[in-house]
Amino acid sequence: MTEQPLKISIRGLKKSFGAKEVLSGVDLDLEEGKSLVIIGGSGTGKSVLLKCVLGLITPDNGEIAIDGVNILKLSPFERARKTRQIGMLFQGAALFDSLKVWENVAFRLIYGEGKAHGPSRNAAMDRLAQVGLPPEVGDLSPNELSGGMQKRVALARAIAADPDMLFFDEPTTGLDPITADVINRLIVDRVKAVGATAISITHDMVSARKIADEIAMIHQGRIVWRGPASEIGASGNPYVDQFVNGRAEGPIKMSLKNT
């Protein structure tokens, strides 16, 4: 399509947990600076895919190249250095509840990069301001915050070290529509500001349309459709149509058992 270098290139990625195959050969390319949203039902392996790229789960088979380097062939130390460029917003925010909000945001600076507390605190306060939170919030404990505020703090934490890549795991799940929109805007805004390549997984179509350049649909461990976000309504793909329109009838049969 373009001459842009591939930031992420995934080939034939497979992962099983026991007898259950979660990823059955995922192929996925993403150009630098683009925002891809992966949609799909619960338990279709979306989170597992992200965790494989992050190095939190080791896949059974396939390759994951970041900037053209297959990270699965690297030593654990080298792989950690490579995956360190990725900022991740976890579904439940995953804030450290033993630390204050500002320490969460500055966690990577202080503990990962050994920076001094004073400047790190200032940097954290700047990041909080960028996600629309006043400095007073910095001295609170994460469990004093609402779900939407926690997501904002987690976003501030994910972007604190200016990562090349940002992953969002269901960023708007469990939020009211207005807060969800605030988070969507912040994501679009921050991804642009840090110039990051972004992958988001969601089943919130409103959110997907807002934050995606492109959308890919995953079903039964494979990518079944991919296209520009503007074409999602007229994809002509029965899986995508069923999902986007939220119909119980169609080619996708929901299994009741979770993975």
Partner: peptide
């Protein structure tokens, strides 16, 4: 910390 993804989050923040 494990079940609320805090341990995974720590790894993504470059802290072992």
């Amino acid at each position: 910390m494990r079940v609320s993804d805090q341990i995974d989050a720590m790894s993504t923040l470059a802290v072992d």
